[in-house]
Computed example of a mutant assay.
Amino acid sequence: MTDEAEAIARLADFIDEHFEDCVKAILSIKGRVVVTGIGKSANIATKIVATLNSTGTPALFMHAADAIHGDLGMIQPDDFVICISKSGNTPEIKVLVPLLKRKGAQLAALVSSTDSYLAQSADFVLNASVEREACPHNLAPTTSTTAALALGDALAVSLLEARGFSSADFATLHPGGSLGKRLYLKVDDIFRQNMAPHVSENAPLKDIIIEISSKRLGATAVVKDGTTELVGIITDGDLRRMLNKYDSIEGIRASDIMTASPLSIEPETYAAEALAIMQEKNITQLIVTKAGKFEGFVHLHDLLKEGLI
């Protein structure tokens, strides 16, 4: 593990003008980035392809062995090929490189040996040199594959930043799962499925209890008489505290027991922000308002149901 960590740290020295030229070349292409390799390098290639695609750079994986048996047909002249190989001298790579050059696609070599056949034949060299493998016999691809993966990530992040790829762009490519939902799901997408308990500020206690119990959200908004302007909130906890506070509950109105100027959230706010507020304030619901007007409630259960927790 120490060997691999040190190797990744040394890669910073290889982020130079050659790396920059490769980034600029990829930014200028009209086609796709095709990443290829064989053996363990092929496994690394598939991960780099996934990272490129998810950060705004269209990419494909092509196995180097399959390429020389028909898959080379996926390469177009406007594409950019990244070939991953530790030695840069494997038989499959030596067969593949001239064929790629004939296709007219630009070629970058992601290699540990910069004087290899692949490096010498490529238009760009991404240097992933390592001193030794983590394997005690210095044989199994370990440190070298880790370095190749890290350099691929550096390339993807550089392209992401150069394109101005935002979190909103990321969300459009990751609509599934909790990550995607945190990036695109808004309060407006979920709160309307709930009932919207509310009473006027002069509502009697009976009406308050009926509203809270019938709408099953554990609270009711309090609005100004004759309007939807939010003035307060009453929770079931407020009702329990009321019983301890007052000797007689006769004549109690909403304005007597409500919490004035309660926390609220706009419909266009991201649901993840609503969750953060609930967690910080240790509450289970938020009132949804638009320009100070009561709209409804978003509940912790809604966020749980959406997988944000």
Rank of each mutant, 00 (worst) to 15 (best):
N282S: 15
R182F: 09
L72Y: 02
G56L: 15
Q279P: 09
E266K: 11
L160W: 12
N194R: 09
V298M: 01
K94Q: 15
R253H: 14
C22W: 00
G251T: 10
A45V: 06
T2F: 08
A203C: 03
G307Y: 07
A7N: 03
H18S: 04
N138E: 01
V223N: 01
G307N: 05
V97I: 15
L183Q: 00
E131I: 12
F19T: 10
E131P: 04
K281R: 14
L110E: 06
T90N: 12
I234Q: 14
H69K: 07
Q76P: 01
K281E: 14
L155P: 11
A156W: 04
K290A: 03
C83R: 00
E295P: 00
G226I: 06
A291K: 13
R253F: 05
L300C: 05
H137W: 00
T142K: 06
V187T: 10
H198F: 10
R32I: 03
M1I: 08
I212T: 12
P141Q: 11
K103G: 13
A25M: 10
G73K: 13
T2Y: 07
T2R: 05
G296I: 09
A276Y: 14
N202H: 13
G232I: 02
E306T: 14
H299W: 02
I283D: 11
L183K: 02
S28T: 15
I68N: 09
V95Q: 05
V81N: 05
M1Q: 11
D21N: 13
P136R: 12
I8W: 05
S167Y: 08
E295F: 01
A260K: 14
F61V: 05
I15S: 08
L179A: 04
V125A: 01
D256R: 03
L308K: 09
Q279M: 10
I29H: 01
P262K: 01
A42N: 12
T289Q: 10
A67K: 07
L107S: 05
I38W: 02
I26Q: 04
V231I: 06
I233E: 00
K281A: 14
T57D: 00
A150S: 09
L60R: 08
L139W: 10
L217C: 13
S129K: 14
D225Q: 13
A168V: 10
S113M: 07
K103E: 02
M258N: 06
L230H: 05
S28E: 15
A271G: 12
P197A: 08
Q76F: 10
A276D: 10
R241S: 09
M74L: 15
G152D: 05
R182W: 08
A221R: 00
A128L: 02
K305T: 04
A150P: 03
L304K: 09
K206A: 15
S261Q: 11
N202P: 07
R192Q: 10
E20P: 01
S85E: 05
V288P: 02
G177C: 09
I252F: 00
K224N: 07
K47S: 11
G104A: 04
N89V: 03
